[in-house]
Nucleic acid binder design. Sequence first.
DNA 1: GATATAATACTTGTATACAAGTATACTTGG
DNA 2: CCAAGTATACTTGTATACAAGTATTATATC
Lengths: 243, 243
Amino acid sequence: MPESSEFLYPVKWLSKASAGDRVTCELRMRIICGLIGSGTILSENKLAADFSVSRSPIREALKTLASENIIRLERMGAVVVGLTEKEIEEIYDVRLLIESFVFERLVRMDINELVMELSKILEMMKIAIKYNDADEFSNQDILFHESIIRAVNHSYILMIWNNLRPVMESLILLSMRLRFKEKYDDFTRIIKNHELYIEAIKTKDRALMIKSLHQNFDDVQGKVEDLWKSQQMLAKGVEQQDD
Amino acid sequence: MPESSEFLYPVKWLSKASAGDRVTCELRMRIICGLIGSGTILSENKLAADFSVSRSPIREALKTLASENIIRLERMGAVVVGLTEKEIEEIYDVRLLIESFVFERLVRMDINELVMELSKILEMMKIAIKYNDADEFSNQDILFHESIIRAVNHSYILMIWNNLRPVMESLILLSMRLRFKEKYDDFTRIIKNHELYIEAIKTKDRALMIKSLHQNFDDVQGKVEDLWKSQQMLAKGVEQQDD
DNA sequence: GATATAATACTTGTATACAAGTATACTTGG
DNA sequence: CCAAGTATACTTGTATACAAGTATTATATC
């Protein structure tokens, strides 16, 4: 019985979104942080009632979440799969795979414009840290990697990214919110690491790129319990949210 | 515009499918073979009328096709992107990427059961050739590669495959239909090539695997014009049913 | 009491209706 | 004749209705 008043997904990111997208994003967050546990059976009608919408947007959401592999559509009800330790590792397998691929392309391209873009994003990230805005930081973090991927102009690599992105986004959001409360110091390291990534692109240093990518993963990866923790922390701190 | 009596997608594969899936598969085939050209704007209402269904299954289809990157959902109408030479190459970039990844995992696994499975599929392919069944041959061809990918039990690699699969399927279907009519001899080579792939897995010979994978691509790749040709050939094969 | 059968309360997929928004064509005033 | 506003015909997203199917439970029969 989730109260429709509490939202895990940043509400301001949904300002122009449809009800379907809203439900998709919120459900994803709840599943990934463990609020809706693995094995739970989701009913279209029940969800519709909980979110006070009709079945149409719910169906849309379930289809999307199924394509992201966090629920499984069966003949009767959608069963929550969620993320185990293993799956989080698998996500990073894929990121490593595609970002390495992208890097190979980058070294044969003019990367001036990209480096400029990345520097801008890095500045934004610093501001987000300064103002304690975990959500905005996450947003820029994702944008950072997305910009790199977009730069090579490969529609099917971009397709993979797009399929992966939402789950990544949820993971990063939860991870960063926790860090902002508990391990604020981490951010200087994260920033430094992103500077390393830019450096790797500038100097076309493959090894450096892999290294910084790995470090980046360690920064976000976290254990599944942490996601739980993140959610509970948020539940306690809802009042602070409206600043 | 398109006559609902002619279907490019094998009808028997849709026996238990919903109207939404039917429309998705058929639309995809028409887009990929060029029957519905790039730039065409698809209207939900018009499609609904053409396929004699309501907007619900059409919306579902458009969402799916958009996630496959062959149409783009804009604020007014869905615009067909289709496949250019470049995109077909990109698909194979991704396949090479994931099948290489999978191979690395395979060499550290017990592959007896998989080899057995692949041998079975290969037998099936031979039968399909014998009975001139291009569609069944395509089906088994895809199953061959899917079995390999499934074997490593990596949910996010499988996710990529699942996102790629439908477009691949259409490409292979069109390519194989053409071959059965024009280049029947090719199949002995394709079979031999798959035997090579099995051999590569058995002996865990990475180079051999890459080689056979590349050859496999050459077998299907074909030019975009060929897809056109394939469709036109089919159109002639079907008794003109214009009204 | 155990098994077959019927009633029920769900489920899914599709159709249809409607509000709100947006491009196109059509007026109307200058 | 053109600019500006208005009407119109489309669009999307959501709600709702309904048929057909599938589990679950209750009932009847042996």
